[in-house]
Design a protein around this nucleic acid. Structure first.
Lengths: 212, 212
DNA sequence: TGCTGTTACGATTAGCGTAAGAATG
DNA sequence: CATTCTTACGCTAATCGTAACAGCA
């Protein structure tokens, strides 16, 4: 049977792009990692890595497999830490998920104000990607999620909370640099740098409702 | 660290409502199961079961924990069997999720017809609950999902496929037994027996669009 | 030679079953 | 006293690390 430990080895190896590097990070011997990954591959009946001199890269199948595995493992870890944190007594707690950065002014103010008003309610904030937030609400890991944009999701209700001005940083030579106001459609096709929670994205499908 | 094997023990115990019964079903000794569950509880820092003379019942925390664990474990098992089944070559495959029973006339006919027309495309059908289907589409485990009702879900598009008459079985004395046609709102508050995929539900929130 | 990953061998560890113990109706 | 779960004790089996091996800059 495949065990969680092995899956963690797998993830580390995929992440590091090399068995030896991953083993160093995990503080285990490289041989151990190689063997365990071999076990998984034997069990699945297919190779997950292309071994080479400069490390090991995921095969097509490996990429597919690991995508789901990563999600499952992180969800499990999150579950454990959350259960451990809330310990005895699941009531009186509010788990709130954020998409925008928690430290962003307006949000932080609102939340701390609520905390001051209701000291008996223990709040826990988590930052996740948009779709993880929706999933979290679905399976009751989250009580509440704050995110930008419109939401159409069966069984959920959304309320506009506040609207916010967004600033765009541009190179001086950029076509849009002279403009006083920029709308979302103007940015279609541009690349953005975001925080670690989300990846580099290309906007271009739908205007977001909170542009002021 | 908590391992998958232990989680399976946990699920079996919760399901059986007794450590000894679960151990019998798993073909292991009861002491083994008790010990492993003890490990989990120690690791989480809280009891998951109320032990008694007539078995072990989940605590409040236990119920919460196990709900997520069950989902994660089944998803992992499904992932493995699916990966093993499709083996070498992830292309040329179509994974279709169904909410309604797969064997139901119209659907089965359509699918087999498609299969005959395109023998080069290997199809795999899975039955899941509604929200699992949506999740499956989200994380790319499914290529396509067939379900009843309306869908509002960010990033997905739905097309009506066919509409179908639904028959209601009633006791002879029932108020609605004389009616020629029954609409969904009429059934608000009634209880239904459904297949294993879904639980006993009470309809009462939204009219479904496929009542003919 | 320095880096990759693999394989063989002995030691360690962790899980297993057996068996005994404690508690309850 | 039968049934429940827990705990202690050896044993077995799986994993680990060491070390030797193969291939390529």
């Amino acid at each position: 049977m495949i065990e969680l430990k092995q899956l963690r080895y797998l993830l580390a190896a995929a992440d590091a792009g090399s068995f030896s590097r991953a083993a160093r990070l995990l503080n285990i011997k490289q041989a151990t990692l190689s063997r365990q990954i071999g076990h998984i591959e034997k069990r699945l009946g297919m190779p997950l890595f292309d071994r080479s001199l400069r490390g090991a890269k995921l095969t097509k199948n490996g990429e597919f497999y690991i995508r789901s595995v990563e999600r499952l493992v992180t969800e499990f870890d999150e579950l454990n830490s959350w259960v451990r944190a809330t310990c005895c007594g699941m009531t009186g707690h509010l788990t709130v998920g954020f998409h925008t950065s928690f430290s962003a002014g307006n949000l932080r103010a609102t939340v701390t104000e609520f905390g001051d008003k209701h000291p008996d309610v223990k709040m826990r904030g988590v930052e996740r990607e948009r779709k993880r937030l929706l999933g979290g609400l679905e399976n009751r890991t989250l009580d509440l999620a704050v995110m930008a944009g419109e939401i159409f999701y069966a069984g959920l209700r959304a309320r506009p909370f506040w609207s916010e001005r967004i600033l765009v940083a541009l190179p001086e030579q950029h076509d849009l640099a002279e403009r006083e106001r920029i709308t979302w459609p103007d940015l279609a096709g541009e690349h953005f740098l975001l925080g670690g929670v989300d990846k580099l994205v290309t906007v271009g499908f739908r205007a977001c409702s909170l542009a002021s």
